[in-house]
Amino acid sequence: MSFKFRIHIIYGLLGTVMGITLSAIGFADYNEVFKMFSLQDGRMLFAFALAVAIAAIFFTMVHFTTNIKLEKKVFHQGTIPGSIIFGYGWALCGACPSIVFIQLGQGKLVAFITLFGIFLGVRSYNYIHARFFSWDTGTCGI
């Protein structure tokens, strides 16, 4: 199997597993997301924190025992303002960039509007960034 073929299969499987996992936790349900953000229900917040803790223990152990090191993320002028805009948007539409696809899979057709919004947002940011900003956004470490 060529590298190209294999990587498509792997990404497809991982996306499917991610869709099932996030669905099962409830991240694709606006009611659950709203209850988390309005501090009525800590269930998903605890799940998220536990996931980070488990992965952190693993990555730290790997960091000290093998040559796979911890990833570094670039801090730049856009990190905080971008996060504020993202948090505001997430509270409004209840979807982050992966959740919108999962909502579609569950049959929520209005997620097409959110999807179009995200598409416009990514597109216009790339334009704005190339035109006005010179900082380096190493987005999601790819």
Partner: peptide
């Protein structure tokens, strides 16, 4: 909201 999510995450 979607627009803000797209723009903000980037």
């Amino acid at each position: 909201g979607g627009f803000m999510v797209g723009l903000g995450t980037q």
